[in-house]
């Protein structure tokens, strides 16, 4: 495993959710950077230091779709898992078209499942 392969960026504006994700994923041995807005995420993503990004969709100012657009426009290669509570097929379609690798609905997905998916994506 490469040294950077455990660095994960979590973009989540709801502090309670960001907190539990950070605690759980840190315990699983991942190195977590938490940002609470899409705006704050953009310069970090550009450094190219993350091996995976977990991104919410509904956020003020710069939302998840714009984050995905940014990654696409800058040709940054990084797997992005969308973790959201939006569930309309149009949202999923749009996110996937913009390059999201997976689309998970928070209230339907246990933490254990999220970890399983992250591990699977990182092993590729």
């Amino acid at each position: 495993m490469e040294p950077t392969s455990k660095k994960i960026l979590i973009i989540e504006d709801e502090k309670q959710l960001a907190r539990v994700l950070e605690i759980k994923l840190s315990r699983e041995g991942f190195e977590i950077t938490n940002v609470t807005s899409g705006e704050a995420a953009l310069p970090l993503i550009e450094t190219g230091q993350f091996s995976l990004i977990i991104c919410d969709l509904m956020m003020p100012k710069v939302d998840g779709f714009q984050v995905l657009e940014f990654i696409k426009s800058k040709n940054i290669i990084v797997p992005v898992i969308v973790l959201t509570n939006l569930s309309q097929p149009e949202d999923e379609k749009r996110a996937r078209e913009l390059g999201a690798l997976d689309f998970l609905i928070k209230s339907d997905t246990p933490l254990s499942k999220i970890i399983e998916i992250i591990k699977e994506k990182l092993s590729h």
Binding site: E14, K24, T84, N85, L111
Partner: peptide, 18 residues
């Protein structure tokens, strides 16, 4: 509506799971 209703439910789920 889906966002507002589901967010607190997700928090309950995840913290209970922990």
């Amino acid at each position: 509506a889906s966002h507002q209703l589901r967010s607190p439910l997700s928090a309950i789920n995840w913290y209970t799971e922990m």
